[in-house]
Design a protein around this nucleic acid. Sequence first.
DNA 1: AACCAGGGGTACC
DNA 2: GGTACCCATGGT
Length: 271
Amino acid sequence: MVIRIEDDFSPEKIIKSGQCFRGCGLSLNSFRFITGRHELFLTKAGEDTYRADCSDAEWKEIWEDYFDLGRNYTAVRQSIPAEDVFLTEAAAYGRGIRILRQDPWEMLITFIISQRKNIPAIRQCVEKLCRRYGAPISGRKEYAFPEPDQLAAASQQELRALGLGYRAPYIVDAASAILSGKVSLEELKGRSPQEAIDNLQQIRGVGIKVASCVCLFGLGMTSPVPVDVWIRRVLDQKYGGKNPWKRYGDNAGIAQQYAFYYAVSHRDEFR
DNA sequence: AACCAGGGGTACC
DNA sequence: GGTACCCATGGT
């Protein structure tokens, strides 16, 4: 089917913005995304049109929500005040980025894996995890992200063998916290960001940064700001170490994403 | 509060 | 092809 998206939408920038690790570019104008048991091939067909290899029903049920198409990102960008010179520049550069609404369980595990790894290394580990423990996606060559019970069946040694290192016990603990109901990700969707972050930090290996990523990319929240090394550099180099996010309120997480994308795309300036 | 923890990318030589 | 440094950090 063909879809028209008039608001900001750049699959390439979304993939390169370090929020999803299973999306990839296949050619200059075609992209692949995976969520749950769904795989999507998306090809740019015109100025603001794309060809998607899924039914109309699947687009509406799965992908509209996944790409957060209900939110007006053009308006978010335009609400950035000119006084914030860096963010005005970063948002113009990152026009097309959206905050994906991904599966919170997948975000929890993925961002536990992410600690002290670079993005290509994270992708590789996540892919190995899917191939080893996930269910095959019907009719496709790819594998779904493993469910909590599938990961809970993994031993620490198996996980270490996938290159997960010291994160292996963290992943085992996260799976058991979710399986036991000690942490309910669905329930956290109805809580405040602060409550959700506090709750997530009960899981071993989950600090404030990883918890913020789960909220931002998996729980549909747009105010949390995960502070990693790149955002730290932006704060230090562009804002004198003071955080510029307060003025952005509920859109602070989106603003953060433009800043992150700008920094990693200009890595030489920020090291 | 300094220090440590897998291992793959990356820039240099 | 070797090597030194870096990486969407958190625990001790």
